[in-house]
Design a protein around this nucleic acid. Structure first.
Lengths: 186, 186
DNA sequence: TTTATCTATGTCACTCTTGACATATTAACC
DNA sequence: GGTTAATATGTCAAGAGTGACATAGATAAA
């Protein structure tokens, strides 16, 4: 099975969801580390159902169209559990901003500094958002990681990676921008 | 043009290279932040030549097959320069290990701890490699970033992002593993 | 002499992913 | 009554990327 299938199962292992619900989780917050569009999700759900990893029931709603709510099966949960402790398949890292940094010597230092300051602000903004979520989790999930339920700790751990990433990325952007500004005057 | 084209131009802006040379740069060190296989590189070179961004000449070698050495054109250099200060196109981040962390509550804490310790070691190893390169650069390129040539500073900046990334990633892996071990005993 | 390896260049089928197209229900607003 | 937006589910064409296939010159080792 491909990683997308496990991403879907990882959400369904916590809660029954429709394709539309999954689409929104794949935007935020799961999308912060694994994203997919609805054009991938609906065919993937059909495959997972073919393979016996999920089932669905149609739910009628008032004020909204009917929906198909998917649930993970015992086989699905077993497959997901087995996958969790397998080493991840190595993906080629691709970061366009680092590539731009590698070529920034061709550009005007001032124009490049603007870019890295802008990007730094974007990462700082994302960091603030993550920090607010972290504070909410710590308040509502027992104060410290050791006291959290295991599933809450798993969510908290994923968030902590996001915090580290954005903090470090923002700092690097500021450092690059500062280095560029030195080349402006002296 | 797609990012792959600019990755190729970014290498050719520093040095004339054959498709085979580019392939090796795309493994290491450029591959640390933008990678491509030779099956992508050769067609891309043909496209770049069609568009007038590169030219090539055939070079005969002793003891090796002939090669086509590519050089960036003035148009290619201009296109690359303009691209450098444009904001990067947002790519969907995908990190399978964070997805595994998000689902680790389904697994045995001990088995999951083994995974995160393993992955932590891999990131520490990459970090050591980067740190050795950093030391080499500082020794050979003037001691500190401000004293470096602009193109050397650009390479150094790209490396510094890698160092921050691996350091922070390794630390997160150790932190997750420690949290999992607590759930083993108490 | 055969085999393996490195250099060197290319093509092709397949998978993954995206963006556009397509349709339908219901609510809210003008 | 018409428009817009949110909910809800799907398909399809195209692009990006990988792995396998293919060929070939030259060296070195067995």
């Amino acid at each position: 099975m491909r990683t997308l299938g496990y991403a879907v199962l990882s959400l369904l292992s916590r809660e029954d969801l429709s394709g539309y619900d999954l689409k929104r989780w794949m935007e935020r917050p799961l999308g912060y580390f694994w994203s997919a569009k609805h054009s991938q999700i609906y065919p993937e759900l059909a495959r997972l159902e073919d393979e016996g990893f999920v089932t669905h029931r149609v739910v009628e709603q008032q004020g909204k169209p009917d929906k198909k709510v998917f649930a993970i099966t015992a086989e699905g949960r077993e497959a997901l559990k087995a996958w969790v402790t397998e080493p991840p398949v190595g993906r080629a890292p691709r970061d366009e901003l680092i590539l731009k940094a590698y070529s920034m010597w061709l550009a005007e230092p001032g124009a490049a500094a603007v870019l890295f300051e802008e990007q730094g602000r974007l990462h700082e903004e994302q960091l603030r958002h993550y920090k607010a979520t972290e504070a909410w989790m710590e308040e509502n999930w027992g104060g410290s990681p050791e006291k959290m339920d295991f599933d809450d700790f798993a969510s908290y751990a994923a968030l902590r990676r996001g915090i580290g990433y954005e903090r470090d990325y923002a700092e690097w952007c500021r450092w690059v921008a500062a280095g560029l500004k030195e080349r402006l005057s002296g």
